[in-house]
Simulated assay, not measured.
Amino acid sequence: MLDYKFDEMRFHIQRIYIKDISFEAPNTPQIFQKDWNSKLELNIDTFSNQLSNEIFEVVLRLTVTANIDKDIAFLCEVKQAGIFNIIDIPDLYKTHFLRVYCPNILFPYGSECISNLVTRGTFPQTHLTPINFDELLKNKISIKEK
């Protein structure tokens, strides 16, 4: 268990786990006959559930879709989750922990899982670039304010 102490605030990682995995290759084996000139699309979503007073589940959903022309080569979705203790952290910072800090911790695990699934489907390796969750949060806030 990792423990970070910010004066009186504390943060613990209790558990990191896969909540759900899906891999679909609906157009195989015909798709393997085409030249690999795919268009990849990544969708990201995060959500959290409060399990008790200081314990939260955070889920990072990563969905990667690869298309060749109008055909789907593969669709891969991973819900990477974690249980975190967030103790004595003011609400102002709690949102940042739940929507930025925890997803940053979960992202490498989810990215590795997607890479593994795509490779097992015998498609070319897929490596996701790091995500700036701070920027995603800022964009969501500014969209809601308009």
Rank of each mutant, 00 (worst) to 15 (best):
I87P: 06
S52E: 15
Q33A: 15
V78C: 07
F133H: 03
P124E: 12
I131D: 10
D71R: 00
L62G: 07
I87T: 11
E57P: 07
I72D: 01
I105M: 09
E112L: 12
L128C: 09
L62T: 03
I31E: 00
V64Q: 10
P29Y: 04
K138V: 11
D134I: 01
E57D: 12
F107G: 07
P108I: 14
D45G: 10
I86S: 08
K39N: 12
I31W: 01
F84W: 11
L128W: 05
V78E: 08
I105H: 05
T46H: 05
H96L: 14
Y109M: 08
E24Y: 02
P108M: 12
E145V: 10
E135G: 00
A66K: 01
P90S: 11
P103S: 13
F84L: 08
P124A: 11
Y17D: 10
I114T: 13
I72N: 00
T63Y: 03
I44E: 10
C102P: 02
P103V: 12
N132D: 13
S52I: 08
L2D: 14
L60G: 08
I143V: 10
E8F: 08
F11A: 04
R10I: 02
Q50W: 10
R99Y: 11
I105L: 12
I86M: 07
K34H: 03
D3C: 01
L136R: 03
S48G: 02
L137T: 00
S38G: 14
I44A: 08
I86H: 08
Y93H: 12
R10D: 07
D88P: 06
K144F: 07
A73H: 02
W36F: 14
I13H: 03
I16G: 04
K144Y: 05
E57N: 09
L137C: 03
S52P: 02
T46A: 03
M1Y: 14
Q125F: 02
H127T: 12
I83T: 11
Q33C: 04
S142N: 14
L51K: 14
E135C: 00
Y93R: 01
S142F: 08
Y17Q: 06
F97R: 01
L2Q: 14
Y17K: 09
V58N: 02
V59H: 08
F107M: 07
E24N: 12
L60R: 08
F74C: 15
N49K: 15
L42F: 05
F47P: 00
L117T: 09
P26C: 07
S142Y: 08
N27C: 03
I87G: 12
T122K: 09
K5H: 09
R15S: 14
E112R: 15
